[in-house]
Write a protein that binds this DNA or RNA. Sequence first.
DNA 1: CCCCCAAGAAAGGAATCACTTTCTAACGAG
DNA 2: CTCGTTAGAAAGTGATTCCTTTCTTGGGGG
Lengths: 212, 212
Amino acid sequence: MTRVTAEAAGPVRRRRHGKQLEAELLAAGWDELVEAGYGRLTMESIAGRARTSEAVLYRRWANKDELVLAAIEHYRSAHPVAVPDTGTLRGDLLAQLTAVGETRATFFAIAAATAFSGLLAGTGLTPAQVRAKVMGDQALPHGRTLYRRAHQRGEIDLDRVPAAVLDLPFDLVRHDLLMELVPPKPARIRVIVDELFLPLLRNHQAGHASLE
Amino acid sequence: MTRVTAEAAGPVRRRRHGKQLEAELLAAGWDELVEAGYGRLTMESIAGRARTSEAVLYRRWANKDELVLAAIEHYRSAHPVAVPDTGTLRGDLLAQLTAVGETRATFFAIAAATAFSGLLAGTGLTPAQVRAKVMGDQALPHGRTLYRRAHQRGEIDLDRVPAAVLDLPFDLVRHDLLMELVPPKPARIRVIVDELFLPLLRNHQAGHASLE
DNA sequence: CCCCCAAGAAAGGAATCACTTTCTAACGAG
DNA sequence: CTCGTTAGAAAGTGATTCCTTTCTTGGGGG
């Protein structure tokens, strides 16, 4: 008779479970990382933000470093960079570089800082391993859908373009992100594509007329 | 009569002073930063490495963050990047990029990690201010002696070359440093200069014949 | 030669924080 | 409906470490 129905008095404390709870814990970890930084982030602050207790965190991750590492990886896989398909190499590049800039602005700063600073030594990984894990090894230039499509359309000849040229736009956007901590301006992206990348491309397509 | 002369028994404890002591303290701070990382560095470990006590540190810097910031700045100004003069733009560039890579390899990783991670919030500076202070705003492309000399020699026409092109070699070396944490390989530097920078330069010197 | 500032040693205060432990009760599985 | 798992609350432990304080004595400046 003293039983209380869900919609009755008091704040209804629903209890979260499984994957959905875990996702909220990792999101809380990422948010703390962004707002406080690794140095000021505590297990208590993460638990507090997720409205749970530290014990819940320790049931899932052995220590703080494991949690932080998982939070970074979770953020990346939960925020994939859209791969555009505009029909032209130039359009695709502009769109993808913009998407990378916007989607990865905070991510790169946070991930780089955390990976570089040796703060994750508690995971037993080498700095290089941490970096690879955190950065996700997104540098697969030849495999980039972008370029493969342009190749299939006949816009470029992948076999004749040096890898350094293909990497250049992405390297520069990554560089700008790390230096400025905000997405590159549209004007900067246009400069990268129109004043650097495309001219270099033309130098390697001398025999072609397809680039118009 | 119980007075002991300097060369007599016991470890001769000379007492350091002024600028020379300060330089050793900052060097100890930098070394700890490199070996232990900000997260594991303590005032005690710095004092121990410098063979002095924490009080000596606190007489100079109000707190740990101030000391770390000063140590980073001290390292940079104590290790300037050599500006080469080989007589040609290509030679100068290869030499300077190599020098930047070698001189700044550890510096960039450490400085970036420390600046980005919000660990220096104790200094009252914004993250952007910390970054500027730590990085030293070495991005003064137009002012680069390198390019000015090439301009004077008539090798290039600075007014016709976009800033993005002039920045490119330095941006890419910086990018590589941040990604790999070790100096770029000589082959990579040659690719940057010969496959990226110089071809782009030629595109803007169409009217000239001086580039051979 | 003397004096005073600061180097260096030593010890401790106070706060923070990773991680643990214990307990209650919510919720899913059967 | 029952049972077992685990979310969530609460309190505590031990270690670390920043920073202070006190004291002795070396050595540079006058």
